[in-house]
Design a protein around this nucleic acid. Sequence first.
RNA 1: GGUCCGGUAGCUCAGCGGUUAGAGCAGGGGACUCAUAAUCCCUUGGUCGGGGGUUCGAAUCCCUCCCGGACUACCA
Length: 690
Amino acid sequence: MRRILVTSALPYANGDIHIGHLVEYIQTDIWVRFQNLVGNRCVYVCADDTHGTAVMISAGKAGVSESKFIAEMQRAHERDFAAFDIKFDNYGSTNSRENRALCERFWKSIRAAGLVRERDVEQLYDPEAKTFLPDRFVRGTCPKCGSVDEPGDNCSKCGHHYSPSELIHPRSTLSGATPVLRNAPHLFIELEQLHDFLDEWTQSGKHLQPEIANYLKGHFLGEPLRDWDISRPAPYFGFEIPDSPGNYWYVWFDAPIGYIASTHQWCERNGEKLDDWWRSEDCEIHHFIGKDITYFHTLFWPGMLKTAGFTLPTQVHIHGFLTVDGEKMSKSKGTFVAAKTYLKHLDPTYLRYFYASKLSSRVEDLDLAVDEFVAKVNTDLVNKVVNLASRTAKFVEATGLSATYPDDGGLFADAAQLGDEIREAYDATDYSRAVRLIVGLADRANPYVEERKPWELRKDPKKARELQDVCTVALNLFRQIVVYLSPVLPRLAEQAGELLNDPIKLWNQSQKPLVGTKVNKFTHMLRRVEEKDVHAMIEESKPAGSPAAEAASPGAESIGAGAQWNDSGDALAAEPLVPECTIEDFAKVDLRVARVIAAEDVPEAKKLLKLTLSLGGGTTKNVFAGIKESYEPEQLVGRLVVCVANLAPRKMKFGVSEGMVTAAGPPGKDTKEVFIVTVAEGAVPGHRVH
RNA sequence: GGUCCGGUAGCUCAGCGGUUAGAGCAGGGGACUCAUAAUCCCUUGGUCGGGGGUUCGAAUCCCUCCCGGACUACCA
């Protein structure tokens, strides 16, 4: 029996769980359930990641204390997870007593190992909000190309990387104030001292997927590792560093330690010793994470564990992101579906099955194509698997299963033998392979029923025995499949257990037929997915007023009497007003109505479309607009837009842009949520906007 | 730009040096009626991205080109 401790990444306490998160939690939960099913002892811990500037700011905006904010968020997270049958042995919080104690313990070891250095860091400070600003809370003009309103780390126009302090006219996205440079001492961990160890650990071939090991080798381990800035000056929501008053551990220092803290809570409750789980050769530790946090889990974290004398991860399982119909999840397209929105429309079983059927051990993105989702769930689960029970159970309601298992031509035995292969696939997190093998069994079981025709047997009282035998076989094949699928579909396993009066608890139940039990009245186990429910879910996930939402309900433009304007303040808060300007300033900008007379894709560009704008009378302008991710060229031709007509021409990679099409959207370089500015009926190309 | 991963039937993918390249779904034809318009049988469909090479033999190995995607930490 293996002893295994499993974690999923700690969700950040600053937003709801969505279907993207669920890829990871479902992947992990399946693995944990599988391990327990085959008789290993597997404990699954997780926690909310609560610290950092983002939570501090969100709590401030909501007008509540941080502790209240994170408590509410945690309640919501736990509720969502439970609804998807994700079963943690302990769900903690990084803002816990246990975590603080462990952080202090780690810190002591790291200090003692001589890894900590203090160094002054110049950082932008918001004098109005009285806080230091992480890069993403600063925006300004790119020092290289002069593009305005660029993020604090790199320019979305020219791609130039810089530090936020290099921006021209920087401003805080919190208050709109001009940030000032302030010096503050920060504490750094000199990771380079652990370089040899990390080389060996990452390249051993045992702990990481090969592509990850390779990536680390190429990107980081080929040169000296940079020092890691692990402190933040007050104000900061987190733990104050005991020997450095006024400084707090950066959230990424205490977050992974939260894995141990959560385990500690579980140990306390269950009379276990923490050292048996985190400082023992006999216990495996498996982390499941997304590819975005690879760096932290494969370099910092092993380094910290090594230094503090804890067990190193046996394996870090890294998965890709979720895409929907081949595209990144998008709020405006309604594919950024919150867990709770999903639950209003669809059964969680569907998503568990679908993800399982798509997941492999590779670091690949997983695509949820709506058609495929519907087809897979309905054909595999309902039509094939559940069908086995629903077509035979009622024939043996009265008699129960036969007392001895009849001859089935080797079907059950063959499927039992396949168990090893299925088991290996699960263990290797190659669920798509496991599911493929299992569903193949249903493809062999249905023809058996077809051939033996129980519906004819029941007409002849003399064949009652044969009828019972045929159904005993069919129900056993069904049950065997359900045992194999039970890590993925715990609810179905429970229903099958109830139907046949024998709860499914162990993998071995797939190896021996069940005989002589009563059979209960069959009730529906799983409804078919309706495509309209999926679409309703996506509709509900769309923000009001997006181009997509408009397209879905043409004619919704005329705002009826019942319309409500309860617009949230989020958009404004995300990008506060800039300092006021005079009418003369405004007059310098010549905004004109223009007609898009041609629009073409720039194949090499990620975000740009090439537009030809007509100002009327043959005056045209060539403009490159960063709207490719939101609009198709065909949608634009013929439309009236508002352009900045006197903007100095700018040479871009693909040609000269002679103006700019105005568009609204949130700050940031993400151009998936842009909405071009159009003009009311009657305006003609050439009209100036006054 | 660099690194990595892919490109096999309409779709999702399996096969990764050895008999005429497979599955599921979709399409076509038929059967059945126990079952959630479920199931079963038959069937159409592919110069395995292009080109070159290694080999008795290549979808599978090597080279090269083309196409698609991901990543590119000092954000959380």
